[in-house]
Nucleic acid binder design. Sequence first.
DNA 1: AACACTTAGTCAATCGATTGCGTAAATCCG
DNA 2: CGGATTTACGCAATCGATTGACTAAGTGTT
Lengths: 343, 343
Amino acid sequence: MTDAGENKGPSRPATLKDIAQALKVDVSTVSKVLSGGGISVRPETRQAIIDEARRLNYRPHALARNLRTRRSGALGIMLPNLMNPVYAAIVRGAVQRAEELGYVMLVADVDDEATSTSVYLRLVSERRVDAMIIAVSTQSQEFVEAIENNPIPHLFVNRRSKIGRSVTVDDFAAGMLAAKTFAEYGHSRLAFIGAPDELDTAQRRRAGFIKGVKESELPPFIDAVGPYSRKGGYDAMMSLLDAKWGVTGVFASNLLVGIGALAAALERKIKVPEQMSIITLDAEDAIYTSPPLTAIKTSLDEMGARAVDEVDAMFHGRESKDVVIETPPALIVRGSLTRPPKS
Amino acid sequence: MTDAGENKGPSRPATLKDIAQALKVDVSTVSKVLSGGGISVRPETRQAIIDEARRLNYRPHALARNLRTRRSGALGIMLPNLMNPVYAAIVRGAVQRAEELGYVMLVADVDDEATSTSVYLRLVSERRVDAMIIAVSTQSQEFVEAIENNPIPHLFVNRRSKIGRSVTVDDFAAGMLAAKTFAEYGHSRLAFIGAPDELDTAQRRRAGFIKGVKESELPPFIDAVGPYSRKGGYDAMMSLLDAKWGVTGVFASNLLVGIGALAAALERKIKVPEQMSIITLDAEDAIYTSPPLTAIKTSLDEMGARAVDEVDAMFHGRESKDVVIETPPALIVRGSLTRPPKS
DNA sequence: AACACTTAGTCAATCGATTGCGTAAATCCG
DNA sequence: CGGATTTACGCAATCGATTGACTAAGTGTT
């Protein structure tokens, strides 16, 4: 609005050439002033170029630039299911940070192993992305080979892997916090609902839980297993109840599992929290149950954002290490936790 | 594995030039065979090119191709919050269909109006995307102007707009179905929780609800308003209860609103469904409450997928019209609905 | 004044593919 | 058999930007 010569709808976006011609300088000069840097130019010339660029509302053509520089400015992220709030949170964090750092984020929702592989190959071999952030849950042989044979900078998020660095939250601490919380509330008959051992997150949460149980000098706990889904939690809770162990405190080591476990308990007319307390994991208040589930909240969005930071750091030559998010898991006390019944 | 000459880790991805040199033909010939189409080539030559391309595992360099063809092969989608299951479902549908059609999808999670505008401008002026799918909730003046001044093919999803075509689900039918369901169960004291009138989806759901109420010859209903969020639903339900209208059936015209409304009712010790029935909207079983909420399920993922289809059709020259997803809203009866109390 | 540096740029190649135009050789036609 | 077509490609420009090599003019030094 400050310049009378402003044109609202340039039919064709301005190019370096347009600026160069208007000022009768070479496009290379314009390029160097606008992006290149290392060149000496008279202040007047430099300013004229900058002014003209602004006047024409010049924006570099990403494709053209990237073709030359061999950097696409795009990051890819692969995940198994956007409807799972855990992944939604991670992606959201990643997408927002990518925007802040000037990248664009290319999201792929790959529900099975075969698509993981083909999506990875496509994105990489067409050179669509500079790096890939991988949040898929399992790593099939095929997928691992695809990555190894077509390597680009990549990073695992919420998952560790032999074939790359990772960013995770402190799952161990989360597990430990859950156990200690139960101890504090006076529970001693505990159960842990985890996942099959392929899931390294579940392993760490369990290890932390064990440590917490030990440090609090609690008796051994019941170990239940179910996939990280609502149904997994539901089934696990059902078998816990069927076994009649008299458990008073259950740690569901995943949000969906917690929701499913609660549903199962309520269906069996178990009063939560009066007869049984439940603690689960949460991601930015994604829990809508009644009673609301007490949860250990981990910073999933921060994990996503950090993954982008790490990838960015790799580009700037910094060697990447496995990262564990510093923000500690936090206990959010809600309705599903109280002292155990006298019995 | 079939070819002994297969090489596992080509240090540099193959280019047209590599193929051309190996076969002593011109790169243009290779290009025409592999993508161009309209050229006559001897069958042997053609086959040799195809074979060599496969042998070298050739994949066109997306950037290079797109620079020339002026099509990026990428679609953008903008939405206000991935943690909201409604948007997560839409994006998931869109992302998956994009993959099927060979596009890549660039996701932007824009939480406020200002970022909407700047993200749009960046993606468009850098020519990162061929089309933009817009799922943001509100359309500020600024944003509308940005679109009008930097036009590219665009489409609104789950939202209608003066400045572009849209893909929506049949919100009117959803509203009507809710009203008729209540009528069938014998309810007559109803309330509708909607959103401020800017939200065109809310308007249509309300219009449908009105129609359903009329056709079922029910008395007028209470109109409550709250933003489409858990808190909005919570607050709206609280005021409904405070007003003591004796409502027995509440239609919460959005998933988060339904969850919030239920929480409020339970907090006030209202028994659901014994004292009050609740119907809400759902997206692929995203509801985890207890009691589970009866819901009208709309095909949000299909809507996302269809948006991509429409955009693709635009590229192929088909004139686009406003689309309403044909799959009708479906009633999913769950625990929160029953006949009204006698009283 | 002769020589060496700086300064302020320009030139041209390049990234990897696409595409209109040109043309030698092969085929057809009468 | 000679001219007209076709067939089967090759040539070179182009998309828009980046970048190393190069140079003409100006400045400083002795």
